[in-house]
Amino acid sequence: MKSYTYFPGCSSEATAVGLDISTRAIAEVLGMELKELEDWNCCGSTPYGSLDETESIVIAARNLALAEKTGLDLVTPCSSCFVTLNKARIHMMEKPQLKEKVNAALSAANLEYKGTVKVRLLIEALMSDITTKQISGKVKKPLKGLKVAPYTGCQEVRPRFGFDHPENPVALDDIVTAVGADVVPYPSKCKCCGGSAVIAEEGLTLELMYRLLDDAAKNGAECIVTPCPLCQMNLDAYQGKVNAKYNTKFNLPVLFVTQLIGVAVGLKADQLGLKKNIVSPNKVLAKYL
C-alpha cells in the first residue's frame, strides 16, 4: 500500500463529484492510500493567476505548505490543480525572492513552504507506481469489445511537467488497453474542448466540442474517456447544446477514466458515481456492470 496526500480540487465537490467518488473507490482496490489534505483551499486555477499572479501563487503555496507537513507526495486527479500547483512550485524554485515574499505572507498563518513536496497527477501515479500491469491483474470484468475514445485534454500534459507526450499522449490509451477495451484513434485526441471559456465564450466552446464529438463518433467510439473534470463536464453537460446548435444526435457517454477502471475491477455503478453522468452510460456499460 502506497500513501499519498490527496488534493481533490473544488470541482470534486460539485461538477466533478463522480471523479472524486470513483478515484477514492479505485484507489482502495488498487492499493493506494489517499489521505485528503486537511482544510485545503482552492488552487487558484487559471482565473486567479490571470488577475493577480503573485497572489495566486500565495494561495497555492498555502496548500503546498500544508502538504509538505505530511511528507507524502501530493496527488490530484484535477488537471487544472496539477498545472496551477506546479506552476507556483516552479516559480518559487526559479525565483528565490518570490519564495521569500511568499513565505513572509505564509508566516501570518504560521506556515512555511520549503520546496520539498512533489505535485503529481493521479493518472501519472497510476502509471508509475501502480502500473498498467497491476491494473490488468485486478480486472474482473474485461471491457472486451467496448470502443473507447481516450481524451486526455490539455492540462494533464501541457505545459510539460514530465508526464506523457504533450501532443501525442499515450498513457490513457495504455489504461484503456489494460482494462480490456479497444482504443479508438481519432485526430482530435489532443485538441482543447474550450475549458472554462464555456461560460463567457459559449459559441466558441460549442464549436470545439462539436468537432471533438463528431470526430470521436465518426471513428466509431461508443464512449469518451477523460481524466479531466472540466473536459468531462463540458462534453457531458453541454452535449445537448451541441446537438441543438449543430443539428446532431450525439449520444456519447463521457466517463472519467477512474470510472472506466472501476467498472473493469468489478465495482458497481453507485460506487463509481455513474448516476452522476448526464449522458447515461448504462447502455454501453450494461454488459460489464
Binding site: 490539455c154 492540462q155 501541457r158 501532443e167 482543447c192 475549458g195 471559456a197
Partner: peptide, 8 residues
C-alpha cells in the same frame, strides 16, 4: 483557453 499548445 490555457490549452498551452503554443507554449509546447
Amino acid at each position: 483557453l490555457s490549452c498551452y499548445s503554443c507554449t509546447v
